[in-house]
Write a protein that binds this DNA or RNA. Structure first.
Lengths: 364, 364
DNA sequence: CTGTTAGCGCTTTCAT
DNA sequence: ATGAAAGCGCTAACAG
């Protein structure tokens, strides 16, 4: 019923082995023979049996992509870029890899389970995107599983995630400089004259959250120290009270909205709000608007990531640009071996401050 | 080196068949035996070989999802919803299906190639999202391939795409009512008093583009007829000049921007612009702003889809809401057989008009 | 409820 | 450059 390799072989009057060689193009075959085989394939409408092929070859052409949430453009952009480079149709000849996108929803169990599932599929490569959970037990479990996968020949790439601590596994890492980005953003606000800055952070125990927040606090601390040096007055820029001006929540618009209301309650004299990312910033802006506050006249707002919609916010959102597409594309090339791993296995990807209309000097 | 089913069997002192039965949970096994097997699996850190399993069972647990562009939230939301229902980790017991997301970029060749690739993988199901190309040759090729896939046992679901014309293949279809949505949106503008309405359409030869545009023109035609009936004056609401007020382009912000400038050039007296979707509308709004026009005082703007960012536009975007998440989830259930196909195989999903701040009566 | 026995369709040495 | 043959690791009848 279903046509197999040997059917093709029979029709082309060659052995199954030859057909296989033609199809895989990884072995010399006489041009004439190749033509004959290709014609037979066409005549018979033959489609290779992937599982059989993967079983025999002990590897598949599946590339796993782990994301928190594919509906979020932050991940969608990276996933799309990875895909464009792993050689789907239209890619280089023979490259017919497909992307298996796995939504972890930020759950550690699912992350681990997907790793197992991908191991089961004998995935050719694995790209883990976005920040990592900070739980040590989970990190250890991940490292162990990744090491096993790497041993089995699966290429591992981290994209927008900090390098693995321990694991001796050969893992290529592209990490975003969230810390510097966060620092530069807050420095920008400080330079404008802001002193009371609210911070809507991401969920706790995630590297992205922590790094961005640390950058923010680094900037505050530096400014506080500087001010103290100048006038012996650390004012409100020190870390005292910083906790009070920080609210954690998921990377969602709703979280930005609610957290902003809460911050306003805690500190009505806020002149700026920094959000964990652009989506959260949109929620923050909505809350401020609903409170009758003008941006940036009454209060400045800033985000992070520079997602496509951010430039269209009104006023346009000041944010930190992460080259998501470029990073994803590079991750895709690393996953296929088309590009060399960076020296030391880790490359840090710079974040760029984008100053736009949503931030301005505080009006006194 | 790598541990196999029989290793587990040996350790648990049972036959390989029993281990397989435990793992697949589709056959009665004594509780005690099951425990023993599970323990051996755990001890040995055994991971099932997916390709081998798929080869023997003649089916895989892969579900293909075809999208135009996964970075676009329109597709990201649907893909995420499909995924959440096909029973990845955390889904119902035993359901360990994974989603293979295929970016076609709107290219017919890639669409076809991905179909072949998924056929090669013996995908358990296939979800095709978004509008279809209108080229008859391509449509025929798609139908033929889908029929073959369906024959081979792959469940086919169309999500947000019109039903297949010919194909006798058993395909479940969830189609968006783009036409009604488009009509209602334009009716809303007409009711507000707009008569000169520009339309930034999507790419030609796509069903989504055509249906939305037809809805728009239906509304105009109806209004023209009505006006004629009343006062013998079809004014500018007839189809005369409609071509001039329509510009086609891709579903991108840039297209919205450029097309709007072009429309303004052609017809400076426009009082409203309808965009093919929200992303395009954002570009249109940006162009208008750059031209110094206020929304909605000087000119109204409307989109389509109601993507998450649309409510945060300033002013909030009037648009047509498509229940992308719900549709995707349902498609996922259809793909796994968890839900019955709708009667006749086709369900039309209603679009809901969302009137917000970006549309208002034209000011004379 | 459990074991035995054949393959599933392909790749890949090893010959020639 | 091509063919022959031996599995890859698992599932699914079929017995018992």
């Amino acid at each position: 019923m279903t046509v197999t390799l040997s059917d093709v072989a029979a029709r082309a009057q060659v052995s199954p082995a030859t057909v296989s060689r033609v199809l895989n193009g990884n072995y010399p075959v006489a041009a004439a023979t190749r033509e004959r085989v290709l014609k037979a394939v066409d005549d018979l409408d033959y489609v290779l049996n992937g599982p059989a092929s993967s079983l025999a070859a002990a590897t598949s052409d599946l590339v796993g992509i782990l994301v928190n949430d594919i509906a979020d453009p932050f991940f969608g952009i990276m996933a799309g870029a990875v895909q464009s480079e792993i050689g789907g149709p239209g890619g280089r000849a023979g490259g017919e890899r497909m992307a298996v996108v796995c939504n972890t929803g930020g759950s550690p169990e699912r992350e681990l389970t997907y790793l197992t599932l991908l191991q089961r599929q004998r995935a050719a490569a694995l790209v883990l995107t976005g920040g990592a959970l900070e739980d040590p037990a989970h990190a250890a479990a991940m490292s162990a599983k990744l090491a096993r996968l790497a041993d089995a020949g699966t290429r591992i790439v981290l994209c927008g995630r900090p390098p693995l601590e321990d694991s001796g596994a050969a893992v290529a890492t592209l990490t975003f400089d969230n810390r510097s980005g966060g620092r530069r953003l807050t420095e920008h606000l400080l330079a404008l004259g802001h002193r009371r800055i609210g911070y809507v952070a991401g969920p706790v125990e995630r590297t992205t959250t922590r790094h961005r927040l640390e950058g923010h606090r680094d900037a505050l601390a530096a400014a506080g120290a500087g001010a103290a040096g100048h006038a012996g007055n650390a004012g409100n820029t020190g870390n005292a009270g910083q906790e009070e001006l920080t609210v954690h929540g998921p990377y969602t618009r709703a979280s930005g909205y609610d957290a902003t209301l809460e911050l306003l309650r805690r500190a009505p004299d806020l002149t700026a709000i920094v959000a964990a990312n652009d989506t959260v910033a949109l929620g923050a802006a909505a809350a401020l608007r609903d409170r009758g506050l003008r941006i940036p006249e009454d209060i400045s707002v800033a985000g992070f990531d520079d997602l496509p919609f951010s430039v269209d916010a009104v006023p346009a959102l000041t944010t930190v640009r992460l080259p998501l597409h470029e990073a994803g594309a590079r991750a895709g090339r690393l996953a296929t071996g088309a590009e060399e791993a960076p020296p030391g296995g880790v490359a840090t990807i710079a974040a760029e401050l984008m100053v736009r209309g949503s931030t301005a000097p505080p009006c006194r």
